[in-house]
């Protein structure tokens, strides 16, 4: 019944060659502590499903954990491109299977609902459809003659999401409610691993049942990691760390600088707390935390 694992144990559930879906959106709510642990455990040949992501994909690519990325967008938004991801795709080390966000959502929903396809009008008139005849196909509705795109299921081995709270049974809560497309990956995945800011008593879930985002039968493992989305945000508790993103991008321009940055500030520290400490400690926490409203 108890779903709580140490983050090292939870990451050990991921086998080489798996299809992993990463939660969050762009600079927000990525399961960064878990990703760092995957890197420390030296996972290989992963396929990443990331509807919109940045830093998590870039780390895993930099650590040579990844062969294929299925995504709508990988970038640091206003802070530039994801440098290691870009380089790996350009040099052919990583294969990119590109969709729009909505085509990916439709594929994940087909997997979640056990349907052979889901139709959408997203992608009509673009070249994205023609890129993947095996998975997205232009069709005509026999009754109305309208064109649509049929999207096949995208099966996911493991979904990794970061949330605010869980109980030991594996019930999970996102505060105040889910903002990103994490439901899509969780519902499509064979297994779901959740990192949470805090483990709370089961009674707290019973008291406010409407706030439960995922009931325990959906989750396979829960690991408590305060600030576990750092350096991405975990609204409303904390924002993303602009300084980390800048320093990372700057270091990535020079392989030697990046190696130093990687060892001292990223992969080197043995715990997530030590990782935060290596990136400014209490001063960083106070900079990113948002006031209680």
């Amino acid at each position: 019944m108890d779903k709580v694992l140490k983050i090292e144990q939870a990451a050990a559930l991921v086998t080489d060659g798996s299809i992993l879906a990463l939660g969050g959106l762009s600079m927000n709510s990525s399961p960064m502590a878990f990703v760092r642990e995957l890197i420390r455990q030296g996972k290989k040949n992963l396929t990443l499903v990331a509807i919109v992501n940045g830093m998590a994909v870039d780390w895993l690519v930099a650590a040579d954990c990844v062969r294929r990325v299925i995504s709508g967008l990988v970038s640091f938004e206003g802070m530039g491109l994801a440098p290691n991801f870009r380089h790996a795709v350009e040099s052919g080390v990583v294969t990119l299977e590109e969709y729009s966000e909505y085509l990916l959502i439709a594929r994940l929903r087909a997997a979640a609902t056990n349907l052979p396809f889901i139709p959408t009008k997203a992608g009509l008139g673009t070249d994205v459809i023609g890129l993947h005849p095996e998975t997205t196909r232009l069709e005509t509705d026999p009754v109305t003659g309208e064109a649509y795109v049929a999207c096949t299921p995208l099966p996911v081995d493991v979904a990794i999401v970061h949330a605010h709270a869980a109980d030991v049974l594996g019930n999970v809560r996102v505060d105040p409610k889910l903002l990103w497309m994490d439901n899509e990956i969780v519902n499509a995945a064979a297994k779901t691993i959740v990192t949470v800011e805090t483990i709370v008593p089961h009674s707290s879930f019973i008291a406010e049942p409407h706030r439960t985002t995922w009931p325990r039968f959906i989750t396979d493992a829960v690991a408590e990691v305060p600030w576990g989305a750092y350096p991405t945000s975990c609204f409303p508790k904390y924002g993303h760390d602009k300084a980390f993103f800048s320093a990372y991008s700057k270091a990535a321009r020079n392989p030697e600088c990046f190696r130093t940055f990687w060892d001292s500030r990223l992969a080197g520290p043995d715990t997530h707390a030590a990782f935060l400490q290596a990136n400014g400690g209490a001063a960083t926490v106070n900079r990113i935390r948002r006031p209680t409203t």
Partner: peptide, 10 residues
């Protein structure tokens, strides 16, 4: 709602 001619179901 999605301006589609149909949605599939099983």
């Amino acid at each position: 709602a999605r301006n589609l001619p149909f949605l599939p179901s099983r």
